[in-house]
Simulated scan of single mutants.
Amino acid sequence: MPPLLIVVGGLPASGKTTVATELARRTGFSYLRVDTIEQAIVRSTPLTNPVGPVGYVVAYDVAADLLRTGVSVIAECVNSLAVTRDAWRDTGTACGARVLETEIVCSDPAEHRRRAETRDTGIPGHVPPTWRQIVDREYEPWTRDRLVVDTAALSSGEAAALIASAARP
């Protein structure tokens, strides 16, 4: 069976990290978090946040290395642009992997805002975007099928179970 690339995207504070972490625990898949990669780049170079496409490019290449060795990967990132979505899909397919694209949403604006204003990203030195920055962020509409998971309606465990179920061949 070919490896699987699960791309978990969505706006900041929608619940991506919580769901992707739970999914990694349940599946044993490798877990790549673009925020962690970007913060490591900021810590080790003169670059400041935002670092542009660098974090994503590093993540694509690390994911490709893992997929080529038969290891399934969960890649968690905002993934707000069609170009990044295409790059993830191309990364997986070039390595002979199956690809499952997921979009995490929080359909309750009050809950989404609460999360944005109270969360700890767990990444030393990382400053998360403000609610205003999240609302104003460029986020291109999806133009192809993906699994949409609403964290206002599902617990992180339920969301991870839904994605894991969709990932089964």
Rank of each mutant, 00 (worst) to 15 (best):
G9F: 06
T18E: 11
S107Q: 13
G125Y: 00
G125S: 10
A166C: 04
V99R: 11
R144S: 12
Q39C: 10
V73T: 09
T121V: 09
W88H: 12
F29I: 03
F29V: 02
R113N: 01
T143L: 13
V54C: 02
S165I: 00
R119M: 02
D120I: 04
P129D: 01
R33N: 10
P128V: 00
I41E: 02
L47I: 01
R115L: 01
A166D: 13
A152S: 15
P128W: 02
P50E: 02
E138S: 08
A152Q: 10
L11W: 03
P141T: 13
T27L: 15
E140L: 06
L81N: 07
G122T: 02
V148G: 11
A64L: 06
I37P: 06
P109I: 07
D61A: 12
I134E: 02
E22Q: 14
D86N: 15
R33T: 13
V83N: 01
S107K: 04
A164M: 08
L5W: 05
C77G: 15
I123S: 08
T21L: 11
E22S: 08
R25T: 12
T91D: 04
V42L: 02
P169Y: 00
E101H: 13
L154G: 09
D150Q: 05
A159H: 06
A164V: 13
A161R: 14
Y31G: 10
C95S: 09
A116W: 00
R113W: 02
H126D: 05
G125T: 05
I37K: 01
G55C: 08
L81H: 03
P109M: 09
T102D: 09
I37M: 01
P12I: 00
T151G: 04
G157M: 03
E111L: 15
C77F: 12
G15R: 09
R43S: 14
R137T: 01
L5N: 13
N79T: 15
Y60E: 11
G122R: 08
P53L: 14
A161K: 10
S30D: 14
E111I: 03
V34L: 11
R26G: 15
V135D: 03
A82R: 15
A82D: 15
V51M: 00
A152R: 08
A82C: 05
D61Q: 15
D150K: 14
